[in-house]
Design a protein around this nucleic acid. Structure first.
Lengths: 214, 214
DNA sequence: CCATCATATGACCACCTGGTCATATTACTG
DNA sequence: CAGTAATATGACCAGGTGGTCATATGATGG
């Protein structure tokens, strides 16, 4: 947690530092992010940085936590409709919420995506619980409920499909990150719909009597 | 390309340097890998390193290229059976070959997986063409052939499903990397089979008349 | 035995890193 | 106004980075 000195700062100065730091962590991994660049670009002295934060990790952790809370706000709105949507609609809305978060908070999103790819497990453990596990557990519950409702094939391995759904989300996010110049929100949602269709119906050729749900 | 000096080295010294370098790049990203550590651990002088290689990138590129060739050998064996297997069997064998490569060349595999996650696009462009694109194009051709054969639903977007298959391969690889202590080859192949089943048949509840292929 | 050429070496360079600390400045309070 | 407490500052530190270079050593051939 940043020191009280940081929170006593005038709001504009505080926000400036945060904004610069978020940019730095969006462009560089935690290890490669530079405290020197942050203090230079936010116009404070090196010493001041360490009056505000214990160390580099303190600042990073703070930003990650704030970002996580913000993302949960986006996902929370979807979960209000939890009972009214079937499994596939719900997954669709969850992906949509994730994309909305990414669109509206591109730097925070980039930081999160970068952290997900970082294989320094210690970094995760010191900062927060691995969100991939969180996401997988959530999808497992969703799948079980879908099976109870008769929406999902009871023969599948829920753990594995949950993993697949987490990974698909990650893949969509990477796609967004790499191609964000070309694609607007609609284009991405079409991809999401197509992916969900595949997960729902499979890709094998259908016999005449079988019908696939769009 | 390394300088002739490197190739003139006695084989054991040359291999020692390569082995140490491979370890270094498996444990650290390109940027974080240390020439100092490599020279120290392989018992050569700093200056000698630069008699053998133009710079750090020269060595890295060399290792990446060698690793790519080796992986292609594994995949090539599968492609000999290209005509005798249906689409899903072929994908299964391709994944199996990738896992075999990872099992037998864990360091090279780790380097490749790390490079895939690295978002320094310049690094890719200077070193090689992005293997994700290669893989996707290949799956596109495979899917088209599958559609012609009547194995694949012609209504799908081949580009998107190809992307999904590439990402599934990546996900399986990450899983292997993170959990390799616990899982043996059989365990991983069970996961592969389950994933292919999902892609093939979908996860929605099946009506009585429909049957899913294992 | 000497001359030439390839190779081996580590001190050295400029630059960067995260972090510290004595000192200067400012703000608050009696 | 004085005195104290909070904050701001940048020089400085040890240790790291990739890369260079003059020099030393070794081998090869006439």
């Amino acid at each position: 947690m940043p020191k009280s000195t940081f929170f006593n700062l005038p709001a504009d100065k505080r926000e400036k530092i945060l904004q610069v730091a978020i940019e730095e962590f969006a462009r560089h991994s935690y290890r490669e992010a530079s405290v020197n660049r942050i203090v230079e670009r936010s116009g404070i002295a090196k010493g001041s940085f360490y009056q505000y934060f214990e160390d580099k990790k303190d600042l990073f952790k703070f930003i990650i936590e704030k970002s996580g809370e913000k993302k949960l706000e986006y996902l929370g709105q979807v979960l209000n409709n939890l009972e009214q949507l079937d499994f596939f609609e719900l997954v669709r809305e969850l992906y949509a919420a994730g994309i909305k978060f990414a669109k509206e908070n591109p730097e925070l999103f980039a930081i999160g995506q970068r952290l997900l790819k970082d294989d320094d497990r210690n970094l995760f453990e010191e900062i927060m619980e691995d969100p991939k596990n969180k996401g997988q557990q959530f999808f497992v519950e969703l799948l079980k409920k879908g099976i109870q409702r008769g929406e999902i094939d009871p023969g599948i391995s829920v753990e594995l499909v949950a993993m697949l759904l987490v990974w698909m989300n990650f893949a969509i996010s990477e796609y967004f990150l790499n191609e964000k110049k070309k694609n607007d929100l609609m284009g991405l949602m079409e991809i999401v719909d197509e992916l969900i269709y595949v997960i729902k119906n499979g890709i094998k050729a259908k016999g005449r009597t079988e019908n696939a749900d769009r």
